[in-house]
Amino acid sequence: MRFLSIDGKQLAFALAASVVSISALAQSWPNKTVTVVVPWPPGGPSDIAARPLAKGLTESLGQTFIIDNRAGGGGNIGTAAVTRANPDGYTLLITSSAPIVINPSLYKKMTFDPLKDLAPVTNLLRVPLVLVAHPSVPAKTLKELIAHIQSKQGSFSYASSGNGTPQHLTGELFDSVMKLKMAHVPYKGSAPAISDVLGGHIPIMFDSTIAIMPHIKSGKVKAIAITSGKRSPLLPDVPTFAESGVAGIESYAWYGMFAPAKTPKDVVAKINAEALKNMKKPEFQKVLADTGSDFVGDTPENFGKFVQAEHARWGKVVKDSGATVD
């Protein structure tokens, strides 16, 4: 009994020391450079969210937050690197939804499980997608476009910024709901996909308001419908899919911040609080306004529930469409 008592005291002491250690880690974070991995090429939408936030965190916390672009594998390469990093708050991830909630269903082999190997911190941006067409396409409304696609009897194609992206899966969702039998043409990013649509080589595509807005404003493509639940203030004359008579096509490209799993909750909570504080500053608010995004900062718990729901939703879309990249 004596030995059990000593062991019990030692265990209690160890647990108390562990709690104090975790609390101290949260209080001292950050005391060195923080690396923010963006698993996409520089200049993309994830960068648009990451860079002003990293700048704001650097200024407010007095430690450097550096962006590390690690592109490849549909976002899987950079994301996997974060899952292997020390869970101490000094390696973070800012990414689109693809490697988190789409790729697990799209790829037959994944080296990580984003739901188990990452800790959600907060949502950063949530932007709608716009269905656009080359001016030569003889349709001004969604109803007219659907009739035109159906008249092609399976010989109609659409572009996307890559396999597994929200743009690709939203196209698959549209194709499945309306039974259009379109062919998917994936590109390595929005820029080359947009280039081929502008050139008339591909008739239509879905893309985020971030990427496609300048080309809509210039008249180089025409906006047919938007995937948000309500009209965007950036495109007040463009109807939603629901307004156009097509239900079930509400879709967003979202971008979030994550930490490695097992990062102490106190540390995640501090990162979350600092991120939300900086998201309310003018520089990040301008990003929200320019992209047509509402403020979507959230608690780690609520963001985690959102990620779980998105994982289930897009997993069903992948399954129903039969899409795969392996």
Rank of each mutant, 00 (worst) to 15 (best):
K217C: 01
K217E: 08
G219D: 03
K220V: 00
V221R: 00
K222C: 02
K222E: 01
A223C: 02
A223P: 02
I224A: 01
I224H: 05
I224P: 03
A225N: 04
I226A: 09
I226S: 05
I226T: 06
T227V: 08
G229L: 07
G229P: 08
S232A: 02
P233R: 03
L234R: 02
L235I: 04
P236M: 07
D237T: 11
P239W: 03
T240K: 10
F241V: 08
E243T: 09
S244L: 07
G245K: 09
V246L: 04
A247V: 08
A247W: 06
I249E: 01
E250D: 13
E250P: 07
S251V: 15
S251N: 13
S251I: 08
S251Y: 11
A253K: 00
A253H: 14
A253Y: 10
W254G: 09
W254E: 06
W254T: 11
F258L: 12
A259I: 08
A259N: 11
A259R: 06
P260I: 07
P260Q: 12
P260K: 08
A261H: 12
K262R: 15
T263H: 11
T263F: 07
T263L: 09
T263I: 10
P264W: 04
P264A: 15
P264Q: 12
K265V: 13
K265S: 14
K265F: 14
D266K: 14
V267L: 15
A269F: 09
I271Y: 09
I271R: 09
N272M: 04
E274R: 15
A275K: 12
A275M: 13
A275P: 13
L276Q: 11
L276Y: 13
